[in-house]
């Protein structure tokens, strides 16, 4: 039997690079972020009671719900996992390219990796698509309801806002610069369907995207990003996010960074799993909210 959502929550790290990076970014978001890794704490927080018998009932119900395939909670997690794997693959490739660029014999590897910015733009659009698909899985809407998704973005509070701030900073502002959101559409426009197929990020996600074939998937990604951009623009303006502030916030927890911003983004991509980490926490919360209502 595979792992339930709450077991995944309890296996999340309490303190590592991922947690530190998220702590750093959360200083930019009012409301803050707590690394919730205890199922019992989460249940008693939602239920407003620490009666062990009630908590046990909620937990049993949550496990039953997460084992049912039709309910979509585990499918939401597999989306986050797929994105995480692709992020690691892309990050690893770029770290390799950076290292290999310095060694004369393997220099050719560096020229084999795809253009970094395009790769990054596709990675971001895949993450936005994963967020939307996971949202529809957890909320029970059909798979391409862009409008419902973009209106729900306004309802994102505390933890979810930190999650989106991390997405904007780590995957847009740091690697692509302060004008990232305005350049994104242009960058995605340059991705042809053949090129998309060659990206490691896409391979893991392809089976999870609605539609058949690269062209349909590309259209889906661009529409998703389009809806997300409208909201993200306001979000960045409201919090005053930019790459300088993001770096300073990260330095607060990770220590001083002397490299460029793009290297920082590559480093974070290759060695942290912020997206899957917060994803598991978000899905677990929704699942517990339902289980508490059903016991």
């Amino acid at each position: 039997m595979s792992v339930t959502v709450l077991e995944r929550l309890e296996r999340l790290p309490r303190r590592n690079l991922t947690v530190l990076a998220l702590k750093g970014i959360s200083t930019l978001v009012p409301g803050g972020w707590r690394n919730q890794t205890s199922a019992t704490d989460l249940i008693s927080d939602v239920l407003g009671s620490d009666d062990p018998e009630l908590i046990q009932q909620v937990r049993a119900r949550a496990d039953e719900l997460s084992r049912a395939r039709h309910e979509g909670y585990r499918r939401a997690l597999s989306l986050y996992d797929a994105v995480n794997r692709s992020q690691k693959a892309a990050g690893g490739l770029r770290v390799l390219a950076n290292v290999a660029g310095a060694l004369p014999l393997v220099k050719r590897v560096a020229s084999l990796t795809p253009a970094s910015e395009t790769l990054q733009a596709v990675d971001l659009s895949l993450k936005v698509a994963a967020e939307m698909l996971a949202f529809t899985q957890v909320n029970g809407l059909p798979g391409d309801s862009f409008a419902a998704f973009s209106s729900s973005l306004n309802e994102y509070t505390d933890e979810a806002r930190v999650r989106m701030a991390a997405l904007v900073c780590f995957d847009a502002l740091l690697p692509l610069g302060d004008q990232a959101l305005h350049r994104l559409d242009g960058l995605l426009g340059k991705v042809g369907s053949r090129q998309l197929h060659q990206l490691p990020a896409y391979a893991g996600m392809a089976s999870l995207l609605p539609g058949r074939g690269e062209a349909a998937h590309l259209g889906f990604l661009r529409r998703g990003v389009d809806h997300w951009l409208g909201w993200a623009d306001g979000f960045v303006g409201e919090l005053g996010l930019n790459s300088q502030r993001a770096v300073r916030a990260l330095e607060g927890t990770l220590g001083p960074w002397h490299g460029g911003m793009e290297q920082l983004a590559t480093f974070l991509d290759a060695f942290t799993d912020t997206y899957a980490h917060t994803g598991v926490q978000a899905v677990a919360r929704r699942l517990v909210e339902r289980a508490a209502a059903e016991i």
Partner: peptide
């Protein structure tokens, strides 16, 4: 009132 989940046999 913000609806958050709508599944078979459940609405929140």
């Amino acid at each position: 009132l913000v609806f958050t989940q709508e599944k078979r046999g459940f609405s929140q």
